[in-house]
């Protein structure tokens, strides 16, 4: 492994290698453990102190993993993959405690509700909701096309996106409560913490967002690429968006972001591939196809400056803050997991 160049607030902590391209990752709520799964279907559970590999499963999902979600309360996580299965794992051991065989196609999304009572998943055009025990609670009718993303507005409301539509479901009954239409392929989803704003990146190089309270629909066009990375800060003031080499940050302060200029964070030399806001404060981590990881300090108007940088060998698949905001994990295309302490 080559040594990475690190500057600013980032301080080298540990790194480890996994077998293939990282697909998804998550920290436990106490920040003690980092779980990563990869495109070969492998699963890796690291101790967050030293980076020691606690246990791994080289092929949890035949064909590759597609999603994972850490349980918000219990020491449990769920993974999903190309084998059409959802697996629920105990953090403590390399045996899944529950296997849900959804079907023959890919299970592309899996996500615990904020209260941890339900697990939402999508398989083709269908959403299925399970309890912690893996028992199915309800499933949706077929969407217009394959479900591209899922998000929980709160523990009672689930959002799904697909081509042409955003749907909000009542998570008790499975009834659709609200719909927003947009004739475009929605490729990414971010929800404001108060649950009012639903933001989506679209294949046509735009970012769309809808305000639930007013039903208002806004569109920010003109991105050079498709905005596949989106992130809200914990207060819902700032929405960071990729879609090119620049991180574009929209501020929801006052009457914004409609009619305002966004902040432009320009240092990456290739397209932004991943974004994550620190759990508190306007601190943003960005990763790009250029292998660069940057930590930015932002103002409430969306403008900001870099305060830390690290150069990795390969395209960034994901950056992910530890829940205490004191560590940042980066997963790159070579299958290297790098963790920094952040001062």
């Amino acid at each position: 492994m080559t040594e990475t160049k690190v500057t600013g607030v980032l301080q080298s902590d540990w790194s480890a290698a996994i077998q293939d391209y990282p697909i998804a990752s998550g920290w436990t709520h106490d920040g003690a453990v980092l779980v990563v799964c990869d495109s070969a279907g492998g699963l890796y559970v690291f101790d967050s102190q030293q980076g020691e590999l606690l246990w791994s499963e080289p092929c949890a999902h035949e064909g590759g993993a597609l999603a994972m979600s850490m349980h918000p309360v219990e020491a449990v996580f769920a993974t999903a993959g190309q084998d059409g299965k959802i697996l629920i794992w105990d953090l403590t051991g390399a045996h899944s405690r529950c296997c849900i065989e959804v079907g023959s196609g890919w299970v592309e999304n899996v996500l615990w509700s904020p209260d941890g009572a339900r697990l939402a998943s999508s398989h083709g055009r269908e959403i299925q909701i399970f309890g912690v025990d893996g028992a199915e609670q309800w499933r949706s009718d077929e969407h217009l096309s394959t479900v591209s993303a899922l998000g929980w507005l709160n523990s009672n409301e689930l959002v799904s996106t697909c081509y042409g539509r955003v749907t909000i479901f009542d998570s008790d009954t499975g009834e659709p409560n609200q719909r927003f239409e947009w004739k475009g392929s929605l490729v990414s989803l971010a929800l404001s913490p108060d649950g009012d704003v639903i933001a989506c990146g679209s294949q046509d190089n735009s970012v769309h967002f809808w305000r639930r309270s007013t039903g208002e629909d806004s569109m920010m066009a003109g991105y050079p690429g498709k905005p596949a990375a989106l992130a809200f800060d914990s207060t819902g003031t700032l929405l960071a968006t990729g879609g090119g080499e620049t991180v574009t940050v929209w501020s929801f302060e006052g009457d914004g972001p409609e009619g305002t200029y966004p902040g432009s964070l320009e240092l990456h030399e290739r397209a932004i591939s991943t974004l994550d806001f620190a759990p508190d404060g306007f601190r943003l981590a960005s990763g790009g196809r250029d292998g660069l990881v940057l930590v930015w300090s932002l103002h409430s108007d969306g403008q900001g400056r870099p305060e830390g940088a690290a150069m990795l060998e390969s395209v960034l698949a994901k950056v992910c803050w530890r829940p205490d905001g004191k560590s940042l994990a980066a997963l790159d295309g070579d299958g290297v997991v790098t963790v920094w302490k952040v001062s």
Binding site: G184, S185, Q203
Partner: peptide, 27 residues
């Protein structure tokens, strides 16, 4: 999918974008 750029013949296959996007990640 229509690309919603005003050109009705600019249609693409969303399923291919997703599937190929995933395949190209593998080592």
């Amino acid at each position: 999918f229509e690309m919603s750029n005003g050109c009705i013949c600019c249609t693409v296959r969303g399923d291919l974008i997703r599937v190929l996007g995933n395949l190209m990640k593998r080592r």
